[in-house]
Amino acid sequence: MKRVFLFLATNLAIIVVLSITLRLLGVERILDEQGVGLDLNALLIFSAVIGFGGSLISLMISKWTARHMTGAQVIERPRDATEQWLLETVQRQARQAGIPMPQVAIYDSPDINAFATGPSKRSSLVAVSTGLLRGMRREEAEAVLAHEVSHVANGDMVTLALIQGVVNTFVIFLSRVIGHLVDRVVFKVERGHGPAFWITAIIAEIVLGILASAIVMWFSRRREFRADAGGAQLAGRGAMIAALERLRQSVDRPHLPDQMAAFGISGQIGQGLKRLFMSHPPLEERIAALKAAQQ
């Protein structure tokens, strides 16, 4: 579950920091129209620059962040037969998928999980947990690797970054509009902007950013079905179904850091409103989709 949640958290932190920094530098004054109201055209351009900037920065550092959050160790030279098998499997699958060989890493965790991340197909990382290597048969682990390679081949991180950039743009734009209305209607500021504008805008930016993440999570759930289908093509539909069944039956819940939760294959369980913020569909739905495609 890791990839998406970490990306969203990093992105939100970046745009808030950028917004505060630009405010302190006085750059946001260009949004004032003759000191009376907002220049909506300038605001939209400003929002797009900051919104896509935060998203793209998050994308560029995604691989570095993932490695440091999980303590994943990239395999430079295989030290044993398991690491040799990992490298050979990912290399074969990458060749089948038509992408450059990703870096392969292992991180120490008891849960059965894996993730793929990186800013591009040419600079990607596939990492698996020690729990996965101990708790899955080879054909199941191969299917999990195929799922992650499919994420890379499908360009899911880049797609996510573009979607997040659009969402960021509207979040920043609307937060400034809300701040302007509070400043004018509640505090009766007639020219320029008072402290209420900036405080309200930052709070609205955080709240809207969290709510807007539901949109990004919806796209993430759609991409999981596609990655499952890609994994089935690379490793076999039966193996992909067996791997998801193994995840579903696993007693251990994911132990990935919360910020990395959306990166892994196993996803999370949620009901009601919580389901809106799930990065992965329930495993039962993913298994059902693969079985339905068999018929």
Rank of each mutant, 00 (worst) to 15 (best):
Ser120Lys: 01
Ser120Val: 12
Lys121Gln: 08
Lys121Tyr: 00
Arg122Pro: 00
Arg122Leu: 08
Ser123Thr: 06
Ser123Lys: 09
Ser123Ala: 10
Ser123Val: 03
Leu125His: 01
Leu125Ala: 05
Leu125Trp: 00
Val126Leu: 05
Val126Ile: 12
Ala127Val: 07
Ala127Gly: 08
Val128Asn: 03
Val128Arg: 01
Ser129Asn: 08
Ser129Ala: 10
Ser129Phe: 04
Ser129Gln: 07
Thr130Asp: 03
Thr130Ser: 11
Gly131Leu: 07
Leu132Ser: 03
Leu132Ala: 11
Leu132Gly: 02
Leu132Val: 06
Leu133Thr: 14
Leu133Cys: 08
Arg134Thr: 10
Arg134Val: 04
Arg134Met: 03
Arg134Phe: 01
Arg134Leu: 05
Arg134Pro: 00
Gly135Tyr: 03
Gly135Ala: 10
Gly135Ile: 07
Met136Val: 12
Met136Gly: 08
Arg137Cys: 02
Arg137Lys: 15
Arg137His: 10
Arg137Ser: 10
Arg137Leu: 10
Arg138Cys: 12
Arg138Thr: 15
Arg138Leu: 15
Arg138Lys: 14
Arg138Trp: 10
Arg138Gln: 15
Glu139Ser: 14
Glu139Ala: 12
Glu140Arg: 11
Glu140Cys: 12
Ala141Glu: 05
Ala141Asp: 05
Glu142His: 11
Glu142Tyr: 04
Glu142Ser: 15
Ala143Gly: 15
Val144His: 00
Val144Gly: 02
Val144Ser: 01
Leu145Asp: 01
Leu145Glu: 02
Leu145Ser: 02
Ala146Lys: 03
Ala146Leu: 03
Ala146His: 03
Ala146Val: 08
His147Ala: 11
Glu148Arg: 06
Glu148Lys: 03
Val149Ile: 15
Ser150His: 05
Ser150Gly: 12
Ser150Tyr: 04
Ser150Gln: 03
His151Val: 06
His151Leu: 08
His151Cys: 11
Val152Phe: 06
Val152Leu: 10
Ala153Tyr: 10
Ala153Thr: 08
Ala153Gln: 12
Ala153Asp: 10
Ala153Glu: 09
Asn154Gly: 11
Asn154Asp: 14
Asn154Pro: 09
Asn154Cys: 09
Asn154Gln: 14
Gly155Thr: 14
Gly155Asp: 14
Gly155Cys: 12
Gly155Tyr: 13
Asp156His: 07
Asp156Gly: 06
Asp156Thr: 01
Asp156Tyr: 00
Met157His: 04
Met157Pro: 06
Met157Cys: 04
Val158Lys: 05
Val158Arg: 07
Thr159Arg: 14
Thr159Cys: 02
Thr159Ala: 06
Leu160Glu: 07
Leu160Cys: 12
Leu160Trp: 05
Leu160Met: 15
Leu160Tyr: 09
Ala161Gly: 04
Ala161Arg: 03
Leu162Arg: 06
Leu162Ile: 13
Leu162Pro: 05
Ile163Asn: 04
Ile163Arg: 07
Gln164Gly: 15
Gln164Leu: 15
Gly165Cys: 11
Gly165Lys: 07
Val166Ala: 15
Val166Leu: 15
Val167Gln: 02
Asn168Ser: 06
Asn168Gly: 02
Asn168Leu: 04
Thr169Trp: 09
Thr169Ser: 12
Phe170Gln: 09
Phe170Arg: 05
Val171Tyr: 04
Ile172Val: 15
Ile172Trp: 06
Ile172Cys: 06
Phe173Lys: 11
Phe173Leu: 14
Leu174Lys: 00
Leu174Val: 07
Ser175Arg: 00
Ser175Phe: 03
Arg176His: 13
Arg176Asn: 10
